[in-house]
Simulated assay, not measured.
Amino acid sequence: MNNTVHVIDQDLINGALDYHGYRDMIKLLLQERKTTGNNHSDEMVAYTKMNDQRMNRWDKKVMINEELTEIVKQLPAMNWLIITEAWCGDAAQNIPFIAKLADLNEKINLRLILRDEHPEVMDAYLTNGAKSIPILVMLNQQMEEQGKWGPRPEPIQKMVLESKQKPSLDKLAFVESIHKWYADDKMQTIQQEFIRLIKNFNTHE
């Protein structure tokens, strides 16, 4: 938790995008056939276009259960910072849920930064040594870390780790299986993960 003292401060939060700004940025980049980062290949732009469509769908479909809704509404003022990139499939699947969650409490300030523009932040939140995204860092008003989540729900993370041990894996089929999992799960797993996460907060005003 000491990482946040060095890499996340109020200036970073103030300069970061809100969710609507993030979505607008992606749409503007797509109009120019670009994505975030430096790789604007047709493949990366195609991923980004698909992700924009996924986020559009989730923005309309995300439903927060009653238990999680009540827990989030009771939180004190907080800053939630997401590390992301537009081309990341897991980001597109999970960020609309996090945004909907933050909207439940006007005291939650949700902001997003791009991974490759903030290497010092990403390096403080590696997953098994990898720059996996999205990562959500949840901080109180004193900029003390209360919790973090990411880069994906635990069942998917297990699938990804196991896939790394299979050199002959059909990558396209594997990615399709991940997105099918998200569609079938309908945000149920991530809601339970957030209930457990927030219940472990040491919150104070």
Rank of each mutant, 00 (worst) to 15 (best):
M1E: 10
D9Q: 11
G15S: 13
G15P: 11
L17Y: 15
D24I: 12
I26K: 00
I26C: 09
I26H: 03
I26W: 01
K27I: 12
L29P: 00
L29W: 06
E32P: 12
R33T: 07
K34V: 08
T36E: 01
G37P: 00
G37W: 07
N39C: 06
H40G: 02
H40M: 05
E43K: 12
V45A: 03
V45Q: 07
T48D: 07
M50P: 11
N51Q: 01
Q53Y: 09
R54I: 10
N56P: 14
K60D: 12
V62E: 00
N65I: 08
N65M: 02
E70I: 14
V72F: 08
K73G: 07
Q74G: 14
Q74D: 14
L75G: 11
M78H: 14
M78F: 09
M78A: 14
I83P: 02
I83T: 11
A86K: 00
C88V: 05
A91N: 00
Q93P: 02
Q93K: 03
N94C: 02
I95S: 03
P96F: 05
F97V: 10
K100A: 04
L101F: 04
A102H: 06
D103L: 04
L104D: 12
K107E: 10
K107M: 11
I108E: 08
R111L: 09
L112M: 12
L112I: 14
P119K: 04
P119N: 08
E120C: 10
E120Q: 11
D123R: 08
A124T: 10
Y125P: 02
T127I: 15
A130G: 10
A130P: 06
K131I: 08
S132M: 05
S132C: 07
I135Q: 09
L136G: 08
V137K: 10
M138V: 04
M138Y: 05
L139G: 09
Q141K: 11
Q142M: 15
Q142D: 14
E144Q: 15
E145C: 10
E145H: 04
Q146H: 12
Q146E: 12
K148W: 15
W149G: 03
P155W: 05
K158I: 14
M159N: 02
L161G: 06
L161H: 05
E162M: 01
S163Y: 10
S163T: 05
K164F: 00
K164W: 10
P167F: 03
D170Y: 09
A173V: 01
E176F: 08
I178G: 04
H179S: 08
W181L: 07
A183F: 01
A183V: 08
A183N: 06
D184G: 01
K186R: 13
E193P: 01
F194K: 07
I195G: 03
L197H: 02
K199Y: 02
F201A: 09
F201W: 10
H204G: 11
